[in-house]
């Protein structure tokens, strides 16, 4: 990268001797329009939010944060956000890892189809993906009718409007974020490593757990962190599949702004969520470097 920038600078010096062309400073200038837009309409709004969370009648105050930590309703929402996110992440890892492993072992044509089945939902609108679960999981939905028809249950199970439904919906949305990086890592693992272990007499079970699995742990950890981070900010899925009964941080933010206008509390909650998210992101970025090293 630097080498190529150097050659470019040299070319410019060379060309500039005869013709006045834009130098490196002009290239730097090209970054500014976007940078100004983002500073004015992204960075400053975030700082403004932070400021609002620290501002009371008499200037600087930590009262809003104190209220956030002393009100059972707020604490309850934060606890259920953490619980649902943790469960969704765990389910994702338990389903996503075998899925990625299975795809790796398929022949190229089937692998292509399987990957398309992972990628397509990833790009389909979250509303569509969430909406379908109402049809599948509702009281008169597909799953309940199958269970009743099979005689497993007499009364329909209410999956919807509970944490179970929200977790299912979130797992569905987040699975590609775990499967695709894991798949990429598994494909890069040198097959000779596992062959060597087998030829030395290790059983396939031992080869998997002592050779293959440890090589995928950094990516598994990094993508689980990513999934957890994304879970914390979920808003649409809990709103639709939780039906007002499952409140996550995102939904509380919505109420604090649109229903009971308490902007300073919304700002404090947003600030807490932002700090947690950024902390997880930095851990994720570090793990990412580690897994590539």
């Amino acid at each position: 990268m630097t080498a190529h920038a150097d050659t470019l600078a040299q070319t410019r010096q060379f060309a500039g001797g005869r013709r006045n062309i834009a130098g490196p400073s002009a290239d730097t200038l090209r970054v500014w329009p976007l940078l100004i837009l983002l500073i004015a309409l992204f960075d400053l709004p975030l700082l403004f939010t932070l400021g609002l969370s620290l501002y009371g009648k008499n200037g600087f105050t930590l009262a809003h944060y104190a209220e956030l930590l002393n009100t059972p309703a707020y604490l309850g929402v934060m606890a259920s956000t953490l619980r649902v996110s943790l469960i969704a992440t765990l389910v994702n890892a338990l389903v996503g890892y075998p899925l990625a492993y299975w795809i790796t072992g398929l022949d190229p044509r089937r692998r292509g189809i399987a990957l398309a089945c992972v990628l397509l939902p990833f790009w389909v609108s979250i509303l569509v993906r969430t909406y379908a679960w109402i049809v599948v999981l509702g009281n008169g939905g597909l799953v309940n009718r199958l269970l009743q028809w099979g005689g497993v249950v007499d009364e329909p199970i209410s999956f919807l409007y509970s944490e179970v439904g929200v977790t299912i919906g979130m797992t569905n949305v987040l699975l590609p974020f775990l499967v695709l990086p894991l798949y990429a890592t598994m494909m890069r693992i040198d097959g000779r490593l596992t062959q060597a272990a087998s030829s030395l007499g290790a059983s396939s079970w031992t080869v998997f757990w002592r050779v293959f699995f440890p090589l995928t742990v950094p990516t598994l950890a990094a993508s689980s962190l990513l999934v957890f981070m994304l879970s914390l900010g979920f808003y649409v899925t809990p709103a639709i599949l939780g039906g007002g009964k499952v409140a996550m941080a995102g939904n509380l933010l919505d109420s604090l702004i649109n229903q009971i206008p308490r902007w300073e509390m919304a700002a404090a909650l947003a600030a807490v969520l932002l700090v947690i998210t950024l902390a997880i992101y930095f851990a994720y970025a570090r793990l990412g470097r580690w897994s590539r090293a």
Binding site: F42, P45, L46, F48, T49, M229, L230, L232, G233, Y235, A249, G250, L253, D254, I257, A266, A267, A270, L273, L274, T277
Partner: peptide, 9 residues
């Protein structure tokens, strides 16, 4: 940054 936080800001 999570969408809800951008939305609030």
């Amino acid at each position: 940054v999570p969408g809800v936080i951008t939305a609030v800001a």
